[in-house]
Amino acid sequence: MSGDSKIGPVGGIVRAGPSRRVASETAAPAHTPAPAPAADTLPAAKLTRLSATLADQPPPVDVARVAALRTAIAGGNYGVHPALIASAMLDFHGRGGE
């Protein structure tokens, strides 16, 4: 029997025969599983609540700054300084000479 014949129609693994008990399983003392942590302590639950809280908040926008930039662009007073932009990009990403 090839390994491919054990894969079920939806990608799950199908057991080819009955499960076998290993001798060490019967000799080991049975232990009770630890109780599951509360839902509030799970990282996924915390992240879900945090994402819902953030989604309900409006994006942080400085409306006055946007209005000033729109006015400057419309009036032709907004200047682009490529050297300053390039310097800021290098500072942000590192100068590469490390």
Rank of each mutant, 00 (worst) to 15 (best):
G3F: 07
S5G: 09
K6W: 11
I7M: 12
I7N: 03
V10I: 10
G12M: 11
I13C: 10
V14A: 11
V14H: 10
R15Y: 03
A16Y: 02
A16G: 14
S19T: 09
V22C: 08
A23S: 11
S24G: 05
S24K: 13
E25D: 13
T26W: 09
H31P: 04
P33R: 11
P33I: 04
P33N: 05
P33L: 12
P37W: 03
A39W: 10
D40Y: 03
T41E: 07
P43K: 09
A45S: 13
K46W: 00
L47Y: 02
A52Y: 00
L54E: 07
D56G: 15
P59D: 07
P59S: 14
D62I: 01
V63S: 11
A64W: 02
R65A: 14
R65N: 04
R70D: 07
I73M: 11
G75D: 15
G76P: 05
G79M: 10
G79Y: 07
V80E: 08
P82W: 01
A83C: 00
A86L: 08
A86K: 10
A86G: 12
D91N: 09
D91Y: 04
F92C: 07
F92S: 02
H93G: 04
H93R: 01
G94A: 06
G94E: 02
E98R: 15
E98H: 12
